[in-house]
Nucleic acid binder design. Structure first.
Length: 527
RNA sequence: GGCCCCGUAGCUCAACUGGCAGAGCAGUUGACUCUUAAUCAAUUGGUUACAGGUUCGAGUCCUGUCGGGGUCACCA
């Protein structure tokens, strides 16, 4: 908070004032009761939000330490101070069983009036609620029911929760927490992700796995001598992909800027500068519709590899995903939406033209123009968007007829030139470029090509885009003069690669919606 | 943006063709010294997303708005 800035304190509303102020929180009955408990604690000289914690063990550490010496008469008892959030309470008169949850897991606490006095038992029952953070000290032991637990000698409040967690009850069976009537409404789960995470352990698992995936990718790239770099998110000219950008504005410079739609053009400038292998993992922003596989901001890995071509990039892609699988799930195969997917190299490699002919009966080689291809598609009763370029028609064929059925790892290669303005043409066939896309689980997850490093050809491609795309087509690539200047200094032959990390995470976590693998997915604002 | 579905207690869900808005869990009160979805008894809690309309009567039917989900378009 900056000095001098205005801080607005929420005001507690009661009685007739309820609902008349737009500034204060509106407390529910349940919250009112807990606010009263806070006052009660303070009245008894207990601070409900103390500064310091004296944790000695996490839940898992305490149980492990206990089990290591359990049954050994000579060994010292395990004394532990634990901290965590109250997740269950089972008071039985003058004893209480409760579970707290910490970052590692759950552990049971056992309170007995004989040890801590009826006063403390009563305080716990009166003023402590599910969701509160507490600290408890005592000795580890095993209950008659067989659960390693903490026999509490003292406890204190660490942070009182005002709002109850949106969960009813949990059951632990064989170490797995089974949720009974927990927070399920997707809207609330995404808008209040903190509550979702607090209550749904399997959601936390998804994001741990996501972190493991990103970690594995960093490790793989670093191990293969790729230099991690950071390039601008705010760009005066956007490029590197066919997408609409977000526009923002720099006040002092009086300049409009775009949020990047890809890293490509900046990373390739670095190859001009002499780095041979560079990569970046970061956020792209695309001003487009949202869907189960599109979020306005998403995470990508891009790398550029000097002296390699798209065939070598295909090989590296196979190794990379096998490595990620090994690191993250310890095996090469996993289930995605009921399909068994195996990431063992090699992937199926099939030429785009051949697979399109097999599936649709249309040989794109026989249709050199958009008109001809559109006619062939119409003859098969396929929908054809008026004004689409040949490349866009082919793209539609891929999306509608190939992609959904590409469940097992598959590379489609050799793409039409006009939707690949940054890829190098095939020797002897200028209408086809050395480009491939990788598919998994019916989704495209990566895109790569032998990068175009001929500055004159690149300039021609930019001009082609300008000619073939209508002035108001927002996907039209703007001419990037500075990028062309960079290419004129000479860029080594190289293979480039881009992969969506969100979609990869969907696959590894068996999630159908991208919102399940993004902590705070974009939602329309309320009102 | 088009079309379809949805929005009821803190959470999960009921409420037949329009007829007194309910349950489980959570909460509150009480009982209970090895429970673990603890149990038992009692009990609080609602502008049925919002704004209109039709009707003697609307959670239910109609119109609009807001939000979500799905799908198509767009798009990786």
């Amino acid at each position: 908070m900056l000095p001098g800035s205005v801080i607005r304190f929420p005001v507690r509303i009661s009685g007739d004032e309820r609902g008349t102020s737009d500034m204060a929180a509106d407390y529910t009955n349940l919250e009112q009761i807990r606010l009263e408990k806070i006052e009660e604690l303070r009245a008894e000289g207990i601070e409900p939000y103390p500064h310091r914690v004296e944790r000695t063990h996490t839940s898992v550490e305490a149980i492990q330490a206990f089990e290591a010496v359990e049954g050994d008469e000579q060994a010292a008892v395990v004394q532990a101070t634990l901290a965590g959030r109250l997740r269950s309470m089972r008071p039985m008169g003058k004893i209480i069983f409760a579970h707290i949850e910490d970052g590692d897991g759950r552990i049971q606490l056992f309170f007995r009036a004989n040890d801590i006095g009826e006063e403390r038992i009563s305080l716990f029952n009166r003023a402590f609620d599910l969701g509160d953070y507490i600290q408890a000290s005592g000795k580890m032991f095993r209950t008659r029911a067989g659960e390693a637990s903490l026999w509490v000698e003292s406890f204190r409040m660490l942070a009182k929760a005002v709002t109850p967690l949106p969960a009813a009850k949990d059951e632990v069976v064989d170490g797995e927490v089974i949720q009974h009537a927990t927070l399920a409404d997707p809207e609330t789960r995404y808008r209040q992700r903190y509550a979702d995470l607090a209550v749904n352990a399997e959601v936390r698992k998804i994001f741990r796995k996501r972190a493991a995936i990103v970690r594995a990718l960093h490790q793989f790239m670093n191990d293969h001598s790729f230099l991690e770099v950071e390039t601008p998110i705010l760009q005066p000219i956007y490029g590197g992909a066919a997408a609409q950008p977000f526009v923002t504005h720099h006040n002092q410079l009086k300049q409009d800027l775009y949020l990047r739609i890809s890293f490509e053009l900046y990373l390739k400038r670095l190859l001009v500068g002499g780095f041979e292998r560079v990569y970046e993992i970061g956020r792209d922003f695309r001003n487009e519709g949202v869907s189960f596989k599109h979020n306005p901001e998403f995470t990508q890995l891009e790398f550029y590899w000097a002296y390699a071509d798209y065939n070598q990039v295909m090989d590296l892609t196979e190794q990379m995903l096998a490595f990620v699988a090994d690191q993250v799930i310890g095996q090469r195969s996993f289930t995605y939406q009921g399909h068994e997917i195996n990431l063992n190299p090699p992937w199926e490699r099939v030429e785009l033209r051949q697979r399109l002919a097999e599936v649709t009966g249309i040989d794109i080689h026989e249709h050199a123009t958009a008109q001809s291809l559109a006619a062939a598609m119409k003859a098969k009763e396929m929908e054809v968007k008026p004004g689409a370029t040949r490349g866009k028609l082919i793209d539609a064929l891929i999306g509608n007829h190939l992609e959904p059925n590409l469940i097992q790892p598959t590379f489609l290669y050799n793409y039409p030139r006009d939707i690949s303005p940054l890829a190098k043409s095939m020797p002897g066939d200028p209408q086809v470029v050395e480009r491939f896309e990788g598919f998994l689980g019916g989704m495209e997850i990566c895109n790569a090509f032998t990068e175009l490093n001929d500055p004159l050809d690149q300039e021609a491609r930019f001009l082609e885009m300008g000619r073939d795309y209508a002035d108001d087509d927002e996907e039209r690539h703007p001419m990037d003069e500075d990028y062309l200047r960079a290419l004129r200094y000479g860029m080594p032959p190289n293979g480039g690669f881009g992969m969506g990390i969100d979609r990869l995470t969907m696959l590894f976590t068996d999630q159908r919606s991208i919102r399940e693998v993004i902590l705070f997915p974009h939602l329309r604002s309320r009102e």
